[in-house]
């Protein structure tokens, strides 16, 4: 029993101290909310130039989940983290545009 406990302890020590997990080859859906928020802001900035909601949705899809909901979450995060008003405005514009686009697409189908 003692040997087993020593073995487990050895495994944990090896895994945490000697060779800890290195995050490589991850996908954007694993990014922390701060980075996701900045990604959404980038999408909002790009949207100002491209004015293409479908492209924005495509870009946001890599973050996982519902893109529209992702934008809402990002706005909340941005508000918590003190993003400047102009950035918040861009994200809100994107949110409204995506919701309108979603409604339009729903009516069209």
């Amino acid at each position: 029993m003692i040997a087993i406990l020593i073995g487990i302890a050895g495994g944990l020590f090896y895994g945490w101290e000697i060779s800890p997990v290195e995050y490589v080859d991850t996908s954007p859906d694993t990014l922390s909310i701060d980075y996701k928020t900045d990604y959404v802001l980038m999408a909002a900035e790009a949207y100002q130039v491209e004015n293409d909601p479908a492209l924005a949705v495509q870009r946001l899809a890599v973050l996982g989940g519902d893109p529209i909901e992702m934008v809402v979450q990002a706005i909340l995060s941005a508000e918590r983290n003190g993003y400047i008003d102009s950035d918040l405005a861009l994200m809100r514009q994107l949110s409204e545009a995506l919701q309108a686009w979603h409604l339009q697409a729903g009516q069209g189908s």
């Binding site: 995050y23 080859d25 909310i33 980038m42 790009a46």
Partner: peptide
């Protein structure tokens, strides 16, 4: 969870970079 952009797979890094350029 809570990873950072440096850990992204190469193709996702490309997307991220393209996003930065688009912004």
């Amino acid at each position: 969870v809570d990873t950072n952009p440096a850990s992204l797979r190469v193709d996702y890094k490309d997307r991220y970079r393209a996003m930065i350029a688009a912004a």
